[in-house]
Design a protein around this nucleic acid. Structure first.
Length: 595
DNA sequence: ATAGGGTTAG
């Protein structure tokens, strides 16, 4: 009699302990006590214990327990599924969905959202679609949480269209801040910054003035960074402060990154300087910003500061510091980092560090050393392709045909260039009917920024972006004619100063941009950054810094032209290209022509 | 007792 009353009072207490437990030892101890009391075998107790083991990552114990249950309910299955999904075994999690149906336990909305999120972790749209179809059949696809998980899953798998379709298909009242935020991050993560910014504007006007939360705000900030929209970025920064998210660590990193990617290093610094205890990611972000701005010494100061403050660097941090060295010509410092990172910081140099070092040596013209390092580096596959391609271009820059041939030979072992190889791969999948894999290749390319896009440049005027392609002035609208006249006039003045390049002529190394359409009386092949600059000069007030973004690297001719025009027009220009920033002022560039 | 979204690189 006494034992029964003890059991009745002790069990809820033990369950409570289980809920708060975060480590294996305490879960196991409480589990043992429940066994002693004799209440561990009830389905609900078992579920609690399974969930607790899963929370602390011991899925094997959870599964043992699960196997020993005489009967299991939907919670038992979903808890185990969730455990596998969050501990790096999402495929196993999804397979449990089949098993549970075979054993006669119908899944609920919790089960489907868990299964869908496992597919998201796998970035597997094919599997995701199957789970989606089942959810549809069982009537759970319209559940707000399941739908939101679906949006995220399709986005992570690179299928933005379907993600959008699910979002559109949600009834307006079902859309909450999480579903809006999920759609927003799909755009941001798939390099669709414009769409993300547009959706955020829609959210502000069409969601009955729902307050934006920190998840959405960080996605929008990232979107602004991606497309270099300083004006929108500033106003989102204002929104962040108004809604009290100015102290959120993730958003703050996003802001540091956003300002630096918008060519406003000073603001990036300002945001960073206000952070009391910057995280590794914060430090990495500002180091990379300084690196892209050619401020190698500054980047090293930040790095030393973080070490002094006991913030441990990671692999990305070291890569950032090495990039800073590379772009500032601090070659020996960079090499020293490569060789000491293992012993000093316990970070094993990987392919990207070697590629960076080879690139650094090549840039500095120390090509023999670059070759030696490239041969030493244990780099394989795609990484090796990157490494040798970068060395090849260094050889070309330094006109070392002999070495270029050797590098080209190594590159040719891979048959195609990176983007080319991936496109071929994707097409192969498509013709084999494996459209899911083809889509995955594309999403993979998008994530890594290897796109077969034509070169373009854009400029933001009063929060509106104007995108220019080579040879096409039309985005300048009614002022197109004036832009061409201005560029013509500038070309004349540049010639007087000894400019040898061309603006409208065909150049030898012109391959970095696709030719625009000719005809319509436009100059053929004028590089997009020059068109954007010409338009900027016409429509912005005297003295204002003009910021131009470009999706590829700037060519030497354009670089020369920008220097001269900054002198002629007495203006400052900031150009963001694929890798870094160029700040043109009074006839010279912040990169000192070393890039 | 089981469910959904955000950060640093190239």
């Amino acid at each position: 009699m006494a034992a029964t009353s003890t059991t009745a009072t002790v069990t809820p207490l033990l369950i409570h302990l289980l809920r708060g437990a975060t480590d294996h030892a305490s879960v196991a101890a409480t589990h043992a006590k429940l066994l002693k009391v004799g209440t561990a075998s009830a389905v609900s107790s078992c579920n609690h214990i399974i969930a607790a083991y899963c929370r602390c990552g011991v899925t094997a114990r959870a599964h043992d327990l699960f196997d020993g249950m005489p009967e299991r309910d939907v919670i038992s299955w979903t808890a185990l599924m969730s455990g596998y999904s969050s501990t790096g075994r999402p495929r196993l999690a999804v397979s449990l969905l089949r098993d549970m149906s075979h054993s006669g336990v119908p899944p609920n909305a919790f089960t489907f959202s868990t299964a869908v999120s496992a597919c998201a972790r796998l970035a597997d749209a094919g599997l995701g679609r199957k789970v989606h179809a089942r959810a549809e059949v069982e009537g759970y696809a319209s559940d707000a949480v399941v739908a939101t998980a679906l949006i995220d899953m399709y986005g992570k798998a690179g299928d933005v269209e379907t993600a959008r379709a699910v979002f559109i298909g949600m009834a307006a009242p079902a859309r909450n801040a999480v579903s809006w935020g999920s759609m927003l991050s799909v755009y941001a993560q798939n390099a669709l910054g414009r769409e993300a910014i547009q959706l955020f504007a829609e959210f502000r006007t069409k969601s009955n003035f729902m307050a934006p939360n920190h998840f959405m705000l960080s996605s929008v900030v990232n979107a602004c960074a991606g497309v270099g929209r300083l004006g929108v970025g500033k106003s989102v920064h204002g929104t962040v402060l108004r809604f009290g998210h100015g102290c959120n660590g993730v958003i703050v990193v996003g802001l540091v990154d956003m300002y630096s990617k918008c060519g406003f290093y000073e603001y990036s610094r300002k945001v960073f300087d206000r952070i009391e205890h910057p995280s590794v990611i914060c430090y990495t972000s500002i180091i990379v910003a300084a690196a892209k701005y050619g401020l190698g010494r500054c980047a090293l100061t930040f790095f030393n500061e973080m070490i002094d403050r006991d913030v441990l660097p990671n692999s990305v941090t070291l890569l950032g510091v090495m990039h800073a060295c590379s772009h500032s010509g601090l070659v020996d410092t960079g090499l020293h980092l490569l060789h000491s990172m293992q012993s000093k910081y316990d970070i094993h140099p990987c392919a990207s560090h070697y590629t960076c070092a080879v690139d650094m040596l090549g840039r500095a013209g120390r090509l023999e050393e670059a070759f030696e390092l490239a041969n030493e580096a244990q780099v394989e596959g795609r990484d090796a392709l990157m490494l040798w391609s970068s060395l090849l271009s260094a050889c070309r820059t330094h006109r070392r045909l002999d070495l270029a041939t050797r590098a080209a030979h190594r590159v040719s072992e891979f048959n195609q260039d990176v983007a080319g190889a991936l496109v071929v791969m994707s097409n192969a999948y498509t013709s084999a009917g494996q459209t899911d894999n083809a889509a995955a290749v594309w999403s993979n390319m998008r994530r890594r920024g290897i796109q077969k896009d034509p070169g373009c440049s854009w400029i933001e005027i009063k929060d509106i972006p104007y995108v220019f392609y080579a040879g096409l002035v039309s985005p300048a609208g009614a002022r197109a004619g004036e832009v061409m006249m201005l560029l013509d006039e500038l070309e004349g003045k540049m010639r007087e100063k000894g400019y040898k390049g061309g603006l409208g002529s065909t150049r030898v190394f012109d391959a970095h941009e696709e030719d625009g359409e000719d005809g319509k009386g436009e100059m053929v092949g004028v590089h997009s950054e020059l068109l954007a600059l010409g338009f900027g000069l016409l429509v912005t007030p005297k003295g204002m810094t003009i910021r131009v973004m470009k999706n590829l690297r700037m060519c030497c001719d354009c670089h020369d032209a920008f220097k001269l025009i900054s002198d002629i027009m007495e203006r400052e220009f900031v150009v963001r290209d694929l890798n870094r920033f160029h700040h043109f002022k009074m006839g010279s560039c912040s990169c000192n022509d070393y890039w």
